[in-house]
Design a protein around this nucleic acid. Structure first.
Lengths: 128, 128
DNA sequence: CTCTTAATCAACCAATCAGTTGATCAACGA
DNA sequence: TCGTTGATCAACTGATTGGTTGATTAAGAG
């Protein structure tokens, strides 16, 4: 019944984590290799504590993990978590797109941009 | 220099919009066809005004558009916007994954799970 | 033991947000 | 014209967030 295999809260946190430019920049940086809090903090004009919180948000969202190397705590990007997000989005994108395709077929493929299409149940006057 | 072709704010809003279970449910519903505010409100125990706000968030994020049909304002999912999001995520996911692959090659492909891997510049003692 | 570096915890402030109620607008249908 | 329906605007409240400063832990280095 519920095909939400990830748990709604997990998605909440993951999308929320990416909804911040600082955290997205961190993801971009981490895609090129693990980094410490200080390295991640460098490009930004905020305190290390703030950066630490950002990383905690990413970690709590399951997007990054942290290991321990002496007093360093290198942050590691979890690519699989990113894939889970795209999977969620694509799930619905593909449904919508296949619906568009069906509709285009039904109407004769002539109309190039299907920007609006009333739910086919009721359409009174669909032109002009 | 800036390859962020979408504008940072646009991504902010889009990810933020998806960081809410109610709005995600709306996206799921809309993937199956356009709907009005009332139809979208039905599954939820919140007022119509709240739903209206949620839709405005989705609209302002560019994920949905609205047309006008008499007093109805059908909401329409923009699949292209969803694709832009997956494109952003995949951009960095693929960088990270290709890096993993390179690293596996470098180490001899034997280690199955590369959970942690210090940025190769400095590694003192990498075992145990 | 003391000093430095890396990072976190804790308390606090300003700003934003989700939801509510109440009033309003716009387009029909009688 | 009046009432109804679909939807929005406006103002308010409680909760959450992003950032700060200050104190604290933890691991080396001298």
């Amino acid at each position: 019944m519920e095909q939400d295999a990830l748990g709604s809260e997990s998605l909440d946190r993951a999308f929320m984590a990416l909804a911040d430019p600082v955290r997205r920049a961190m993801v971009a940086r981490l895609s090129r290799g693990d980094a410490t809090v200080n390295e991640l903090a460098e490009p930004f004009a905020i305190t290390k504590q703030a950066v630490s919180k950002h990383i905690q948000v990413l970690e709590h969202a399951g997007l990054v993990t942290r290991s321990r190397d002496a007093q360093r705590r290198p942050v590691h990007l979890d690519a699989a978590a990113l894939e889970r997000l795209t999977a969620w989005i694509d799930q619905y994108r593909l449904i919508a797109e296949s619906r568009f395709r069906q509709l285009d077929e039904l109407l004769g493929v002539g109309i190039s941009h299907h920007e609006q299409e009333n739910t086919p149940a009721k359409k009174k006057e669909e032109l002009k």
